[in-house]
């Protein structure tokens, strides 16, 4: 039986994390998590407060993530943490105070490389009643900021990290984890959504300063409602650039989506069918812009949906 995380006491959550019986249910996945320390505990209690959890292990879990010290010494002396998703990953040990980052990195690695019920494409996804917008871009291209911005204009969060494309039809499945914000995007999104929605900043991480924009309760409540794609965007933020949208033909869109998939090669033929199916009847654009306002104007022009 699942309950909202915020009904449990800090000690109950601490014990479940220590015992390895803390199960987080989100979108199509269940995650069995374990770890220690106040940094992880405080992050989960704050950023995952509205998520459905169980304090006993589920029969079947998609992800099993343990946040562990890299060795006995680093458990006690200048404690460090590293994500262990159950397979070898090149994860750098982080100070225990950066447990939030280790947790999010661990979940991303687990879903990217281990969850093969969907074609996973590195992309932000939001949706309204007309369908989903998939935004695929390399890190730093403005995907998270645009995702966060669109949430303020009637879209619901599917994911900031993964477009999960169904293997039995080109349908996108929600996985509304917190939105990861890096460096200068933190104040931009903070101004957009307010202080209460942003986690404490993890300072000086290997990725620079990191904070997380908590998923909204109403988006979490709809995490079992998939959507068809209505638009595919390849955002490109560049300071000072004139806003421009360039329509891509389906083959160009596929050429960009295939390398952005983390499990295309593993899935093979079903992944080919899923991605070609997704692109069929969906327009795709490369958009370049120098500000969030410009990016929203471009989305307005392309969708015809008034936002600003």
């Amino acid at each position: 039986m699942t309950s909202s995380l915020n009904i449990f006491s800090k000690e109950e959550i601490r014990k479940a994390l220590k015992d390895g019986s803390f199960t987080l249910h989100l979108g199509p996945f269940s995650h069995l998590l374990s770890g220690r320390g106040d940094a992880l505990l405080d992050f989960l209690i704050d950023t995952y407060r509205d998520n459905r959890v169980e304090m006993s292990p589920s029969d079947v879990t998609d992800v099993q993530l343990s946040l562990e010290a890299p060795n006995v010494l680093r458990r006690f002396f200048r404690p460090q943490v590293t994500p262990n998703p159950g397979f070898e990953v090149p994860a750098m040990p982080l100070p225990l105070s950066m447990s939030a980052l280790a947790h999010e990195m661990g979940l991303n690695l687990s879903v990217a490389l281990k969850c093969c019920r969907f074609v996973n494409v590195h992309a932000g996804v939001v949706a309204d009643d007309e369908g989903a917008i998939v935004m695929s871009a390399a890190s730093g291209a403005g995907k998270s900021t645009l995702t966060a911005a669109l949430l303020q204009y009637g879209y619901r969060l599917f994911s900031d990290e993964f477009a999960l494309i169904g293997l039995d039809g080109p349908i996108l499945h929600p996985y509304p984890r917190p939105i990861s914000l890096k460096q200068e995007t933190i104040p931009v999104v903070r101004e957009m959504v307010g202080d209460n929605w942003i986690s404490e900043v993890v300072k000086g991480s290997p990725k620079g300063d990191i904070a997380y924009y908590r998923a909204r309760k109403r988006d979490l409540a709809r995490d079992q409602e998939p959507a068809k794609a209505k638009l595919i965007l390849f955002p490109n933020f560049e300071k000072g650039v004139q806003p421009i949208a360039h329509q891509l033909n389906p083959a160009e869109a596929i050429m960009r989506l295939v390398p952005a998939s983390t499990n295309y090669s593993l899935l093979g033929e079903p992944a080919f069918r899923a991605i070609t199916g997704l692109v069929e009847n969906t327009r795709a654009y490369e958009i370049s812009y120098g500000s969030t306002t410009d990016s929203l104007r471009l989305v307005e022009q392309i969708t015809g949906k008034k936002m600003l």
Partner: peptide, 9 residues
């Protein structure tokens, strides 16, 4: 097939 491009798996 998309326009003049064929995608082959």
């Amino acid at each position: 097939m998309y326009d003049d491009t064929h995608l082959v798996y």
